[in-house]
Write a protein that binds this DNA or RNA. Structure first.
Lengths: 252, 252
DNA sequence: GCCGCTTCTTGATCTGTATCATGGCCGTGT
DNA sequence: ACACGGCCATGATACAGATCAAGAAGCGGC
């Protein structure tokens, strides 16, 4: 199994390598964009105490499966995860990609069972946050309660953007929008916004954007030909940010 | 202005016709599917006290507009409302239809400003629920807090279903799915699941489903010809529930 | 280092839905 | 009652992206 440095470098360093995977929110570089945001020092200890960290997921491993009982929401510490649901005829619909600092699993709350599945796109370290504890905690911590409401609301607006993208935009616009979204999320983590490695396959991208693999390939080729991108397999370099922005904004 | 009985008949009867529009949750026939669900008698009084009811919206009137400051979420008491967002090039994307007993406006929480707009599709009575009061109340009422989380989670899973629909399904499948969704929501309110009046225009349906008006017309015509539906302008009768279900399930 | 499997690219053709165009209908206001 | 304007239906044509097909490149296992 090839091991990329990137896989583990983003989260706080592992203090020990016992079963417990001691990491804490306080020293985690991602806390700024993750749950602990807007929580003061003493409250953080309480949050800290309920969060569970476990062995990193290997590429392709399942984090949770649709229909399984809902217990926790999850924060990505390193790596990348895709969320998807299976249609009645057995096909997959990718509903989102999750990068370090981002939270997933909140769609399981309404039915006490996960409405979607989540799978690691590459080796991924995950924090599990038991929801019943979180609920109890948030009743006594207004800022946490508010943060949770905001997180869920954010998920709703993100989904609405995707709905609009799927409903109104051309293949080029969809791809441009996704690349810019990834670039922005990289920037938030102080990574390069112009050069990065896509953790997901072309199939996943197509699936997410409501397009076929072939179309994704063609769009990448076209954008490479016009000098907007440099594409080397999963390695992407945005050469003309302006042009990409314009391609995305044409209708988004 | 023509006045359809249906417009006002579903909500609790108006006790008086003063400015205050006295209606209470306790007697509202919709409480079973609305916010008060799972709240006991004494807590209900507190919730009751923060809810504001105002003059019914006329067809076409705006409930809130994207970008405007977020203060309340809204419950539909009678009539119907559409939610939509405006794309950067000025077009509309309808993101949902809301019927009596349903809650909208939760996408405004994340930014303290509405991410979408909402407009009455016909004369509509609305309950406004100030969110800061609701937040305070829910900190001391675990069942209310949980209900709010569930509502938002439900919105997320609904959006994911729409994403899948837009991404994977044909025109016929999309229309069939929408009709069945409306039928089910009618049934929940003890209305006919096989015969109803669509409150929205063909344009809105097309917009919501990522299709053009012409396509919606053609699908309706086709389904009428094959005996699945009887379509008389906005009046719909589902003649062959089985067939419609099958059309929707082909890929949903 | 080589083999085989999966992922990706590129080309040729097909198809569902958009687009364009026209006419009918229905509700609303005068 | 009538005329106007928005909404709806239907036909003809165009096109973006799907599908089908085949080969190339990357990657893990031996």
């Amino acid at each position: 199994m090839s091991m990329r440095l990137q896989d583990v470098s983003e989260a706080a360093p592992l203090r020990s390598c016992t079963h417990e995977y001691k990491v804490n929110c306080e020293t985690c570089r991602l806390s700024r964009i993750c749950l602990p945001l807007a929580i003061n020092h003493q409250d953080l200890e309480q949050l800290e105490s309920i969060i569970q960290r476990s062995k990193p997921l290997q590429k392709g491993e399942l984090l949770y499966h649709e229909g399984s009982p809902f217990q926790s929401i999850y924060a990505v510490r390193s790596g990348a995860v895709k969320g998807y649901r299976t249609t009645s005829d057995g096909r997959e619909q990718v509903t989102g990609f999750y990068f370090p600092g981002e939270i997933l699993g909140m769609d399981g709350i309404s039915n006490n069972s996960h409405a979607s599945s989540a799978r690691a796109l590459e080796t991924a370290a995950i924090c599990a946050i038991p929801f019943d504890s979180l609920e109890r905690l948030s009743a006594s911590m207004p800022s946490l309660q508010r943060h949770l409401f905001q997180l869920m609301s954010r998920e709703i607006t993100d989904d609405q953007l995707l709905i609009t993208l799927l409903s109104k935009n051309s293949a080029d616009e969809r791809v441009a929008t996704l690349l810019l979204s990834i670039a922005n999320r990289n920037a938030r983590r102080n990574l390069s916004a112009s050069q990065f490695r896509l953790p997901m396959s072309r199939v996943d991208i197509g699936n997410y954007l409501g397009l076929t693999v072939e179309t994704i390939s063609r769009v990448f080729s076209r954008m490479q030909k016009t000098g907007v991108l440099r594409v080397d397999n999963k390695e992407i370099e945005i050469l003309d940010q302006e042009a990409l922005q314009q391609a995305a904004n044409l209708a988004a």
